[in-house]
Each structure stands twice: as structure tokens, then as C-alpha cells.
Amino acid sequence: MLPALRDRIVGETERMGPAPDAVVRAIAFAIEQPEGVDVADIVVRPTAQG
């Protein structure tokens, strides 16, 4: 991959991607659910628009 393209992809991911702590909070939410509650899917999407 061209270095300029790689740098652009990394930059866009950092700018638009969800913050790591948001992903951690989503996972913690699923783990902390009481017995009998099944969290089948977690979708974490950025809210920023390009």
C-alpha cells in the first residue's frame, strides 16, 4: 500500500472511528448484564460523518 494512502486511511480512522473508551464501555455493558440476559450482538459505529 502506498505510504500516502496508508497515512490517509489511518488519519480518517482516527478522526471518524469511535473512541477506544466507547468500545470498552459497550463491552462492559454486555458483560455486566444479569444472568438470563443475552446480549447477542454489539455494534459500535462512529457518529462522525465524512
Rank of each mutant, 00 (worst) to 15 (best):
M1C: 05
M1G: 14
L2T: 02
L2F: 01
L2V: 01
L2E: 09
L2W: 02
L2H: 06
L2P: 13
P3G: 04
P3R: 07
P3L: 08
A4L: 11
L5E: 14
L5T: 12
L5G: 10
L5N: 09
R6L: 14
R6A: 13
D7H: 10
D7E: 15
R8V: 09
R8W: 11
I9E: 11
I9G: 00
I9A: 12
I9S: 02
I9D: 06
V10K: 06
V10G: 00
V10N: 06
V10H: 01
V10P: 00
V10T: 11
G11K: 06
G11V: 01
E12Q: 13
T13C: 06
T13Q: 08
E14M: 12
E14W: 04
E14Q: 13
R15Y: 03
R15D: 09
M16K: 03
G17M: 04
G17R: 02
P18N: 00
P18Y: 01
P18A: 13
P18F: 02
A19W: 07
A19K: 15
A19R: 15
A19D: 15
P20T: 08
P20G: 13
P20D: 15
D21Q: 15
A22P: 00
A22E: 15
A22T: 14
A22R: 12
A22I: 10
A22K: 08
V23D: 00
V23Q: 07
V24H: 11
V24A: 15
V24C: 03
V24T: 14
V24K: 14
R25Y: 01
R25V: 05
R25T: 11
R25P: 02
R25I: 00
A26V: 02
A26G: 05
A26P: 08
A26C: 07
A26W: 03
I27L: 15
I27Y: 09
A28Q: 14
A28N: 13
A28D: 15
A28M: 08
F29E: 15
F29L: 14
F29A: 11
A30H: 05
A30F: 09
I31E: 14
I31G: 01
I31N: 04
E32M: 03
E32N: 14
E32V: 00
Q33I: 01
Q33S: 06
P34Q: 06
P34D: 10
P34N: 05
P34Y: 01
P34K: 06
P34H: 03
E35Q: 12
E35W: 06
E35M: 04
G36M: 03
G36P: 00
V37F: 04
V37D: 03
V37T: 15
V37E: 11
D38S: 11
V39T: 10
V39M: 06
A40T: 14
A40L: 10
A40V: 11
D41P: 01
D41K: 11
D41W: 10
D41F: 12
D41N: 14
I42K: 05
I42F: 02
V43M: 03
V43D: 12
V43Y: 07
V43N: 05
V44P: 02
V44C: 04
V44F: 02
R45G: 09
P46N: 12
P46H: 04
P46F: 02
T47E: 12
A48D: 08
A48G: 09
A48L: 12
A48T: 08
Q49I: 10
Q49V: 12
Q49S: 12
G50T: 10
G50F: 09
G50S: 08
G50E: 13
G50Q: 07
